[in-house]
């Protein structure tokens, strides 16, 4: 007989932790509570039923039905789940729902409502960036966040900000698209 606690096994084999900060605001209050929480996504308010520990990703996908944000790893490794929280790129697969109540969340579905996001999408089309496309929602969110923070990133800044994984290897097209946008800003 072998007894395995799957969770224990995960901890044994998967050691690294997310390398970015989780915004923790009201986590303690909302923990385990099945209270309706109000969430602002794409400028619309939603009352959501998921408990406060549920990762934002699954609230967005399963409860609200916004499936443009993708599940890839659940460990903040790949970035397919990237959304903007108050304009800053955030990996929603490890972001508890309770920590973003009161924040302003933007998902890929509303990216073209954002002036910078719209330009990122156009650059993605111009450079024919996506292949399978599965990581690209997250890539577009990460690029939008970068350009919001730094309108004119140099190559090192692009490399430092764009860390989402792409198994199709569209990395060169992604950086070319962002370089174009940075150039635009320079001229404008």
């Amino acid at each position: 007989m072998i007894v395995q606690d799957a969770k224990g096994s995960r901890h044994a084999t998967t050691t690294s932790r997310p390398d970015f900060q989780i915004i923790a605001k009201t986590l303690d209050q909302a923990k385990h509570e099945e209270l309706a929480m109000e969430l602002t996504i794409n400028d619309t308010s939603y009352e959501v039923q998921s408990d406060g520990e549920t990762p934002l990703l699954w609230v967005i996908r399963d409860e609200l039905g916004l499936t443009g944000t993708k599940f890839g790893c659940g460990l903040a490794q790949c970035g397919a789940c990237s959304v903007l929280v108050d304009g800053v790129v955030t990996r929603s697969c490890v972001t508890p729902l309770a920590s973003v109540v009161g924040g302003r969340i933007t998902t890929i579905e509303a990216i073209e409502e954002d002036e910078i996001g719209k330009r990122v999408v156009e650059a993605w089309v111009d450079h024919q960036v996506p292949q399978c496309g599965y990581c690209q929602s997250g890539q577009v969110m990460a690029a939008t966040s970068l350009l919001k923070e730094n309108a004119n990133p140099n190559d090192d800044e692009i490399a430092a900000a764009m860390t989402n994984l792409c198994r199709c290897g569209t990395y060169n097209a992604i950086s070319a698209a962002i370089r174009d946008l940075a150039g635009e800003t320079k001229e404008g």
Binding site: T107, E109, I111, V121, Q128, V129, P130
Partner: peptide, 21 residues
């Protein structure tokens, strides 16, 4: 020729099996 699926894949509109409901 430009790819047909690039805009949908840049805006989250493309639907994969995992998205089906």
């Amino acid at each position: 020729v430009a790819r047909l699926d690039v805009r949908d894949k840049s805006t989250g509109r493309a639907v994969y099996a995992i998205d089906v409901k």
